[in-house]
Amino acid sequence: MTSVARTHAEAARERRDIVSGEVMAEARLIRFVAGPDGAVVPDLARKLPGRGMWVAADRASVETAAKKGLFARSAKAPMKASPDLAEQVSALLRARILNALGLARKAGDLTSGFEKVSSAISSGKAAWLVEASDGAADGRGKLLRLARHQSPPPGVFGVFTATELGLALGGENVIHTAFLAGRAAERWTEDVRRLAGFSPLLPEDWREEPVEAKREP
C-alpha cells in the first residue's frame, strides 16, 4: 500500500466531534444515528444505516450533545435524545466488552486462574489483567505487584463481578483472567478506553495502587 493510500485510509477513520468540533480518530468517538422514530440511537459497532453523528467517548460530551440539541442540529432534522443517553452508552459498552471476553475465551485469547495468569504476566504475554471486582484482595494484590515489574505492564480492568465473568467465560466464578496480547486484545482495548470515559475501570474500594492504564500505541 502506498503512503498516499495509507493517508486516505487514515483520514477515512477520522470524524468530527459534534460537541467540540475537533477531528479525531473514530476509536475515540461514539457514533449515533437516528432511529425510525427520530430517537438518538448509539451505534457502537458503527454499522447501523443512516448518517452518523459522532461524539467524543466521554460522559460529559454525550450529556452536552443531548442537552443542547446538538444531534438535531447536526442532522438538520428533529431528533429526540434521551436524558440518560450517556448511561445507555455506558451500559452498551459494558455488555459489548463482556461479550467480547466470551468470544476471546472461545478463540483461545484468554487464560484464567491464578497460576496461569501469573505465568502469562511473567512471560510478557498478558495485554490486560482482568480481575473480578469482588475478588479477594490477597490474590489480586500479588498479581498487581507482579504486573508492575513487567515492561510495559498490562492494563488492569476490574469492572465485572466474579459471577458476571463466570457467566461470560463459562465458569461458575472467575476471579483472575489475562487477556493475551494480539489483535483481539487490541480491539478489546479500544472499547475499554471508550468505557473509561463513562465509568471507572477499577472499583473505588481497591486499596492497591493500580498499574498504569495502557498507553496509546
Rank of each mutant, 00 (worst) to 15 (best):
S82I: 00
A56Y: 10
A72R: 03
S61D: 13
L93Y: 06
G52K: 07
L92Y: 00
R28S: 13
R96K: 07
A45V: 02
I18C: 10
F71Q: 04
Q88C: 08
W54V: 03
A75R: 08
A11E: 14
M24F: 07
I30M: 07
E87C: 00
E14P: 00
K68T: 10
A66P: 14
E63W: 00
E14G: 01
S74D: 08
P42E: 09
A11N: 14
A60V: 05
G50K: 06
V40L: 09
K76R: 11
A75Q: 11
R73D: 10
D58A: 03
D84T: 08
Q88F: 01
R51F: 04
K80A: 14
P83L: 03
K47T: 15
R13M: 11
L29N: 13
A77G: 10
M79K: 11
A66G: 07
M53K: 01
D17Q: 07
G38C: 08
V19I: 06
V41F: 07
A75D: 07
L93T: 11
V19A: 08
A25G: 08
A60H: 12
R59T: 02
G69S: 04
S82M: 04
E10N: 07
A11L: 05
D43I: 02
G50Y: 11
K80V: 15
A91V: 04
P83T: 05
R46F: 07
V33N: 14
A39V: 15
L48I: 05
S90Q: 12
A86H: 00
D58V: 04
L92Q: 15
G38S: 06
R59F: 01
L70P: 14
A75I: 02
E14S: 05
E10M: 03
A25D: 15
G69D: 12
R31E: 09
G21Q: 04
V55A: 09
K47M: 10
R13N: 12
S74L: 02
S74T: 05
A86W: 00
V33H: 13
A77V: 05
R31T: 12
K68P: 07
A57P: 05
L93D: 13
D58H: 15
V23T: 14
P78H: 08
S90L: 01
A11F: 04
G50S: 02
V23W: 08
E22A: 15
S82Q: 10
K76W: 02
A11Q: 13
R51N: 05
A25I: 04
G35S: 12
F32L: 04
A60T: 09
A86C: 02
A65N: 14
F32Q: 09
L92T: 00
R73M: 02
L85S: 06
P78V: 03
A66Y: 05
D58M: 03
A27D: 15
A39M: 13
A60N: 08
L70Y: 08
G38Y: 09
G52V: 01
P49K: 09
W54I: 00
R31S: 10
